[in-house]
Design a protein around this nucleic acid. Structure first.
Lengths: 210, 210
DNA sequence: GTTTCTCTTGACCGAATGGTCAAATCTGCT
DNA sequence: AGCAGATTTGACCATTCGGTCAAGAGAAAC
């Protein structure tokens, strides 16, 4: 006798389950990042995934469950660039490398960036726990590292938290406000990212060089 | 015989019309900035305005009309800080003053900032014409001014467009990503804006001082 | 090939949403 | 007061949305 009539466990067990959950999450990323949670519909996601709506709900119990699964799967990836900033490297170069990694992510994964942006602009109703947990801890850890560099005179004095905010805002801007940037610059494809790379490297190098 | 059964002209004619259109736009700003266009409902706006839903639609023909009226009324205010950056002032101080004005706006008018953020993150479907018109022209004009300052050696070389993007992103971040910042800093009220002011002044001063 | 479980979907449901309408009420003018 | 136009709203409508369900189609173990 089956206890659970739908998806047996948390993890996909069969080949088909694995493929379809991936397809659904990919489609959901596309739709959620473009319209936000409220603006996205299950029909849109189903169409983008090439599946029927009841079929989506066979793999995920609800719309919020899809959104939640997406964010859970992406949070790690999103924090990795900051994690990679190591206390034992050359301070200025470590920060600059972080800036460039973050910018590269904005270029490669704009949908992921906009997914978070949509969520946070609207008050982060579904991810505040993660912000106050994982994210906050990591930021505090790295802020302490930066503070240490400042005390050692390795980088110019500044508020490490706001430095991190500046890095986030300037880099993610190229993904989140892509429409505005394209409206002003009319770049060919990603051409403006080369300028952005140089500009942000300059900005933060001048900021940090003692 | 009345030709137009509803609101006679574009401009409010009576005291009541003026008061109610203002009330509605204020309520709409509150709701749209919090939930985005798609996520906001007429019932929410009506409730926030203290009016009935049909009454909203007596003053505005549709939901999109309310949104449009809001954006039209706000666009000017939003561009003013950049307009005030004058070519004949001291270059570094002019830019810094612009940064601080923009940050002040993020503090005073976070809802307006989030209204635009919501719209642009989702591809700016309703304001692309304004971005490619008014905004683009103004940015090109001011970019030329900055370019002039660079050629005169008054400020350190940089890409003026990306400088403007950096100013927008860093300042608006404090309004648009308020939820994230509060989740990390847990500030008392606006306390963190004082730090932000000092941080951004330092950031752009180090960037621009020749 | 039969059985058992997995997968898929057309039809349907209740709630929410943008919007309409006609009737009722209010306001300002004479 | 009485009239005309302005304002307000309860009831209603069509559509869309998230979600259910039962029945059918596929895959695989025996």
């Amino acid at each position: 006798m089956r206890i659970e009539p739908k998806m047996p466990g948390r993890q996909p067990r069969t080949r088909i389950q694995k493929k379809n959950t991936e397809t659904i999450l990919e489609a959901a990323l596309e739709v959620f990042s473009q319209h936000g949670f409220r603006g996205a519909t299950l029909d849109q996601i189903a169409k983008a995934a090439g599946l029927s709506k009841p079929n989506l709900l066979y793999y995920f119990p609800s719309k919020v469950a899809i959104h939640r699964a997406l964010i859970d799967g992406l949070m790690k990836t999103w924090l990795d660039p900051l994690r990679e900033m190591k206390a034992d490297g050359d301070p200025v170069e470590e920060v600059i490398a972080y800036v460039l990694r973050k910018l590269e992510m904005a270029r490669e994964f704009p949908r992921e960036s906009r997914l978070f942006a949509n969520e946070i602009v609207q008050g982060a109703p579904n991810i505040m726990d993660k912000i106050e947990g994982e994210l906050k801890n990591l930021v505090e850890e790295k802020a302490a590292v930066i503070e240490g560099w400042i005390e050692q005179g390795k980088i110019a004095p500044c508020n490490p938290y706001h430095l991190i905010f500046s890095i986030w805002s300037t880099t993610q801007h190229y993904a989140d406000f892509d429409a505005q940037i394209r409206g002003i610059l009319h770049p060919e494809g990603d051409a403006h990212f080369e300028q952005a790379r140089h500009h942000l490297e300059t900005l933060f190098r001048r900021m940090l060089t003692p």
